[in-house]
Design a protein around this nucleic acid. Sequence first.
DNA 1: TTGAAAGCGCTAACAC
DNA 2: GTGTTAGCGCTTTCAA
Lengths: 432, 432
Amino acid sequence: MVVTLRDVARAAGVSPATASRALSAPDLVAPLRREQVQRVARELGYRPNRAARELITGRTGNLCLVVPDLENPFFAAVAKGVQARARTLGYAVFVADAEEDPRMESELVAHLGSQVDGAVLCSPRMSDEDLDHLSEEVPLVLVNRQHGTLPSVVIDNADGVRQAVTHLHALGHRRIAYAGGPADSWSDGRRRIGLQHPSHGLRQVEVVDLGHFAPVFAGGVAAADLVAASGATAVLAHNDLVALGILSRLQARGIRVPDDVSVVGYDDIPAATLVSPSLTTVTVPLARLGREAVDLLVSSGLGGRRDSAAERAIAAAVTGRAEGASGGMREAGETSASGETGAPGEASWPAETTATGVATSSGAASSSGETSSSGVATSSGATSTHHELAVAPAAAAGSGGPTPAAVRLRVELVVRASTTTAPARPTSESDR
Amino acid sequence: MVVTLRDVARAAGVSPATASRALSAPDLVAPLRREQVQRVARELGYRPNRAARELITGRTGNLCLVVPDLENPFFAAVAKGVQARARTLGYAVFVADAEEDPRMESELVAHLGSQVDGAVLCSPRMSDEDLDHLSEEVPLVLVNRQHGTLPSVVIDNADGVRQAVTHLHALGHRRIAYAGGPADSWSDGRRRIGLQHPSHGLRQVEVVDLGHFAPVFAGGVAAADLVAASGATAVLAHNDLVALGILSRLQARGIRVPDDVSVVGYDDIPAATLVSPSLTTVTVPLARLGREAVDLLVSSGLGGRRDSAAERAIAAAVTGRAEGASGGMREAGETSASGETGAPGEASWPAETTATGVATSSGAASSSGETSSSGVATSSGATSTHHELAVAPAAAAGSGGPTPAAVRLRVELVVRASTTTAPARPTSESDR
DNA sequence: TTGAAAGCGCTAACAC
DNA sequence: GTGTTAGCGCTTTCAA
């Protein structure tokens, strides 16, 4: 019924070993036999049995991705990025939804870990201990969180906040409310730090901490009333969903946005442009987060014993990468369905990254053998405060070298209709 | 390093065979030895090797889900439902994003099919032929599409359209535009049929077919101008994303919604309530689509040779189901992140379904061995036109019987702010 | 009820 | 370069 390698070998008049090599390591077989075997395999409709292969090689060819909530546009976008990149590298990916439950995160990783070569944990809320524990079971890459020497892909949280505050400051706002995310959210912690260390002469800006809110629409609705009561003329939300909730509630109460209160979000999810006024927010290269995570995972040596031909091809594809967001991060007016301008076709990767969407790949101290870290030279003179990574600022070429264990992606404020000049007040002219 | 079954057997003083049985088929081992083995296994931290098991049993314990676009809230919600149900049944699920490409759908299924026990195809756009072909490789369940005797979970497309049109008619609208989905969308075809066969005395309603549009925001933007030019006082969109696009463009052009034009969507994605005016739409039990799909897949005999204890437990869990949406389909004001009120805890399933969110499970002719089909008695006197399934209307109890091969879920119009009475025109009083 | 033995399909040493 | 051999870890006949 099912065609096995033996069948192919027999039909081709070679030994199973040769048949195996002809298909898995073609270089080791004489051209004639090789093609003979491959042809026979094709004709017979041979499909290798992955279980058998996995049993002996120890590699599964699978990855897994754990997210807190698939329905959250942020994670959906990251998942897309992970998907796309994994597929081009020949990996299938298990996706698991942890339902915002840190314990379920651990369980899922523990359960799936045994059948994957590596796992991407997106915005994990689990404890550092669980992270440590799990990292011994399966290669891990963290997205939107850092811990110890675990490889991770993060965004420049502090800089995003800085840009938002700078923007609001320029508009004359002097009292800004912050509607934070969950208390156990790593990124929220980072953003708070960014808030406490504003650059330049922004000391005049007073930040009102509204507390922690669920990172969803309802959380924003709850925050809105505190915004109104705070006397702030602008509010920075933990993410777009919260900002949307604030927007909605504020408008329902007759408070005009942006005339009375300016609102800034974070992430730039598709819905940010669907509402009116459209949301000023910090654009995050969501799909890119996912792609980088996969690259990091794959390049930091996955499970298994040996580097087969396929694996070498993968390694080459990864190391040789120099992705640039072709055509910008996200086109204005783009809907949720058209997605990121990912790069399924490897041909279309520009060697040089564009100004928009450039990643600041910084080599961090890695616990693994590789001590010499390489990265990409930072372009565009961002004077952002880089608090989050104790990185060696060394920069090198973008190809050939070992992939850094930590990647931080740049973010960028996009100004839309939800922010405008601060409402006229007695206190003006206190600039600079 | 890694604990194998042999190790457990040795440590427990039994043969590998007994150790295997003690863990996989406890009934076959004397209680004393059984617990002895289980204890030792626990102490040693034994983790069964799934590849080895799969190699011999032929079962993987995995499912896969293919969707056109993970970032589309519709599919994200379905994915969540699939996730949740699969997990309670002990399955891990590969999720693949086909990027709206029918060919990629086929490829993904073909590729993943070899390493799963079954696949859920959500709104597949691939050809019937591909469907037939793939169904021979791996057990398939279709969501939002039907073909031949393949098991499927669909919604009552025609009835949703009927409800929408009835609603608009009651509001005095007599000329209604329809902004359709992709030409190769199965559900769009169904909805068009529903449009052509309006029930009752709605013959007075004139439907203007605007054509086919991409099922995303941009598609709606494109459709909006046609709406304006059509002279229609209301428009029904293929889905919410399209409706949102229409809304946006209409407003940008100064056409008031709902005062000048009423807009109705389909699906009730979270974003439907984020915009203003909030969207009148047809609520679809999204997560439930996913859950039912998994149940159907699992109950219709997956790959493998034998029904192990675990499999029997799964079968029991599935057959005994009688899900009801606890507390309604979706609470007003709910955000995208809180998700559906799924049922991870099996304890909380009411035996009787509530009026809201009841499924119309109809037994369809199945090609597999089971000829006697059973379903759930239809409650609530919906006089909808059931064109889409040539079903035997027989209904029976909701537990114990074989699961029907096709499930159709009820949909329900939710009226929000985007629809109102038709603008005053000379022609009135032409009702009924 | 338990154990011995035989593979599931494939790859990787090791010889030739 | 190619074949032979020996398993990977587990389940499952078949005897006992």
